[in-house]
């Protein structure tokens, strides 16, 4: 064993407490992932909705959404 597990954990906590900016990449990661997922969902939603023809819009009987 190169280094004791307790020492690794205490060193890790010590380093983190002195460098709180280490959490920035994780926060940015969450923000960007949520934004991207939202954009992709909106694009997907509108691309499916966009496949409707005006005929279906004006004639609800012809709409497959019924």
């Amino acid at each position: 064993m190169a280094e004791d597990i307790g020492k690794i954990l205490s060193n890790g906590i010590d380093t983190y407490s002195k460098n709180f900016n280490l959490c920035v990449p994780f926060i940015l990661n969450i923000i960007f992932l949520v934004l991207t997922a939202l954009i992709i969902t909106i694009i997907g939603f509108f691309s499916i909705l966009g496949s409707f023809s005006f005929k279906e819009y004006n004639d609800p009987e012809a709409s497959p959404w019924r």
Partner: peptide
């Protein structure tokens, strides 16, 4: 961001 976090 993972590689950035590991680099930091």
């Amino acid at each position: 961001f993972t590689s950035g976090a590991i680099g930091m």
